[in-house]
Design a binder for these strands. Structure first.
Lengths: 181, 181
DNA sequence: AGTCTCATGTAAGAAGTTACATGATTGG
DNA sequence: CCAATCATGTAACTTCTTACATGAGACT
């Protein structure tokens, strides 16, 4: 799902400006998606051209016009079609885990520090999410929030319980020579 | 970490062709990263130009030259520098969860089907990973593999235990009007 | 007879990012 | 007085993907 579609989706909750949509991305979608102004504003312009949203400009003194976007019936239909498609597979990218793949090139102390930091990061993100969770209005948002908290918790526990596997490499009598294959 | 850097990293395990690197991505990195030939081949060419890898071409009859790449001392140094940087934050993208954010636009049956499918997907990926886990040679790989299995398991359990929250919306006396904010 | 593995690459395009451009108002 | 919030946008660039181009040998 691209940002254009997600903007359209956010507008099903009510009209909003680009600025507000950016906030919505941060407040309610940050767990699964994020977007910068530079993708949001062009998306909204394109959606307007396509007739999927309409735009009402409120002129303000000494500030750019406040452009309030609303979804049109055509937009609603388009978005409904979109969410009835089978969702694309989840994508997970982790530089942390990628780095650990090469822990044979790091000194034990560095591996430990890396893991410590990652656990702290996960903990912090989990806490932020937990806090936000309570304030969420809709069930879906609480559900998503809970999902995130659960995943962070699982990651933290796994790291804590298994870090010894890569921190103190078990002495091996006949060390297997590694190759790319 | 971009694909170019990851190619460099994979070459620390030993020399390899572009084709073999692609397989290495699939076999050992698929959980955290993936790459197509169209990013691997240009990356290797660029690394060669930069002097970070060297290339030995073996001509074969009726087949493109087999180009075997090895990391150079300069390449090793560059990669070491890279993995000593603090890793970028994990990125998680989920069309599934994004779709659930809009479950108010779906019929209950569709929500259920969506979740059923996602659980099946997660289960399958978890099983594939588990199977591969045993055959992994290095500790780091087993560690990564275990991480993946743990995360899939946590996701499955969360979905099973909390799906009712969005499948059967609790009847609300005064339904809160939603907005983007 | 058909599919999988081996083997390398280019071209075109999608999708997003960072940096740049501008500037008032509000709260600490 | 400094930072955050409000408010919109463009230009250049990065990075990766899909589709195209080519084709033999091995296995089922």
């Amino acid at each position: 799902m691209d940002i254009r579609t997600l903007c359209l989706g956010l507008l099903t909750f009510g009209e909003a400006t680009g600025y507000e949509i950016k906030k919505a991305f941060q407040d309610r979608m940050s767990m699964v998606y994020d977007a910068s102004f530079s993708s949001i504003y062009p998306s909204l312009n394109r959606l307007t051209k396509e007739g999927l949203v309409s735009c009402r400009a409120e002129s303000q003194s000494r500030r750019p016009d406040r452009k309030v976007y609303s979804i049109t019936p055509a937009g609603r239909e388009e978005f409904l079609k979109e969410i009835h498609n089978a969702p694309a597979a989840d994508k997970f990218r982790s530089d942390f885990l990628a780095t650990l793949m090469f822990s044979h090139l790091l000194q034990p102390g560095n591996v430990s520090r890396l893991i410590d930091n990652q656990i702290m990061d996960y903990r912090q993100k989990k806490d932020e999410l937990s806090q936000g969770c309570g304030m969420k209005q809709s069930q879906s948002e609480q559900f998503l929030c809970g999902f995130g908290v659960t995943m962070y918790q699982a990651a933290i526990e796994y790291l804590e319980q298994n870090r010894h596997l890569i921190e103190a490499p078990a002495p091996v009598r006949a060390p297997a020579k590694q190759s790319v294959k």
